[in-house]
Amino acid sequence: MEVVYITIGVSIVVAVFFFIVFIKSVKSGQYEDTHTPAVRMLFDDELVTEKKDKIKKVKSK
């Protein structure tokens, strides 16, 4: 059953790793603005379609 040392050890290392990642993301301000990125994400598509439209227009001319 010495494997318990390894499993517990690994589980704690993984847990601590995720904890550090979480603290880092808080520090970087990831959770300060949760609204704008959600809206911004939708605009990426808009810009692409707009460019496509432009290309189409140029072609049709």
């Binding site: 603005d33 704008t36 911004r40």
Partner: peptide, 21 residues
Amino acid sequence: IWVLENLNKINNGVTTSMVNF
């Protein structure tokens, strides 16, 4: 948000603009 984040289209001097809603 959209128009303010696309300011670089109007003024080339603007590199990025980011809105915090």
